[in-house]
Amino acid sequence: MSRNVRVASTDAADLAALPQQAQDFRRRARIVDAAVREVAEHGYGQVTVASIAERAGVSRRTFYTTFSSKQDALIWAYDAAAAYAMPQILHALRAERDWARGTAAALATYLAILDCDHAWALACLRDIPAAGERARVARDAVRAPLLAALQERIAAQPASVVGVDTVVAAVDAIAVDGLRHRPEQPLWERRRELTSFALAPFADGEPTVAADAAAISKLPDSGQIEALVAEGPEGRADLELLVRAAIARRDGPTLWEVVVRLQRRSAAGGSPAGDDLAAEALDALGDAWFFGLPIAEPDGAAGASGISETDTLYLRYIAAHPDSSGEQIRRGLALGHLSQVNRTLQRLEGHGVVAREPGHGRANAWRLTAAGVAALRMPSRA
């Protein structure tokens, strides 16, 4: 579930030129990623749609045109994570004839995937149960094939009073404990301990099976995609195979990059030979997962590429009421929580559009910078 690790950065001009389906896909991914990180940091019950929208850089209206609720966004996140992870875990389980080695390989793969992004891991394991019955049903549906496959593999082993589902839940609980209290330690480092724990109820005295290095499936390299697009008609056949494979995997990052690079080539006057492939990739984005997509805004986005609608409200208020404190801004904008206001102000300060000075006998006094004044003259992004 790695974030921003393989896809080339996309500048504001690229984003604005993309077809609506691609922009919708990226916006959905940005909202889901923001929901996951808010939930991981604060817990599901403390997160609001407003805080998710603020973190994603969209308005509440844009959030509600994309998702019906924060529960809906978190379920999307869980389904997207499962679409990436579950095929790899099942493949690892079935690749070994020996039940114990297969189980160990599946667990090693699972831990390696959880280590890709601890915020996503924590939100999916800890907070899905807190997100209501619909979220729990979605989780159970996703896990059912894995539980069935595990049960099938151990069916010939001595009967145990502990069920497979109980063991899986216990492994998840141990993982959550590690993510909360030892976030700097990779879960992968505990694979032998967790393998022994998971196999113990079914092994009947057999020795512990060491978990081999887990091989996480490698998505097509950015350079490979760029090379195929640059070849034009000569690379058409290989690019078509790559796109069809990505559609079958619901591989959003690869589909996104194909669309972006074909768009760049078309804008530069290149051959339109890939237009139909771009259309196929766009159609598939609606059901694709998006780990590896460049979700974070490009460097300087707040100043040079426009700011969010929510950010604009803050800047307009500060422009009209210089030297306002965070509490005054909260009241002036009729916002609910001062902590949310302070986080936004700190983020805007990081972008260089506002600055603070110690107030006279009160909290920090906020003013616009020259960059903030310039940002107000630019169109905000949805």
Rank of each mutant, 00 (worst) to 15 (best):
L293S: 12
F290I: 09
V243M: 01
V259N: 04
L255Q: 12
F291Y: 14
S271D: 14
D283R: 04
F291P: 01
A273E: 15
R249N: 14
A288L: 00
L285M: 08
L262M: 11
D275F: 00
A245E: 10
T254H: 01
R264F: 01
D287R: 11
L285E: 07
E240Y: 11
A278K: 00
A296R: 07
P253H: 07
A302L: 03
G300A: 08
L241R: 15
F291Q: 01
E280C: 04
L285Q: 13
L277S: 05
G274T: 07
E240F: 12
A301Q: 06
I247K: 09
R264Q: 14
A302V: 10
A296E: 10
R250W: 07
A245M: 04
I247D: 07
A248D: 12
R249P: 01
A267R: 12
A301N: 04
L262P: 06
A273C: 14
P253A: 13
R244N: 15
P298Q: 09
A281L: 02
S271A: 15
I307Y: 09
A278H: 03
D275W: 03
L241D: 15
A281P: 02
A279T: 05
S308L: 03
A284D: 03
V258H: 02
T254D: 05
A281R: 02
R250I: 06
L285A: 09
R249W: 10
A267K: 08
F291T: 02
V243W: 05
I247G: 01
D251E: 12
A281N: 01
S308K: 06
I295V: 14
G306D: 00
S305V: 05
T310D: 08
G274W: 13
L262S: 12
V243C: 05
L242D: 05
P294N: 04
A279D: 02
D299K: 15
V258E: 01
S308C: 04
V258F: 02
G286I: 08
V260N: 00
G252F: 13
V258I: 07
W256R: 09
A304I: 13
G269R: 01
A267F: 06
L255G: 14
S266V: 05
A248V: 10
A284W: 03
P298W: 06
V258C: 11
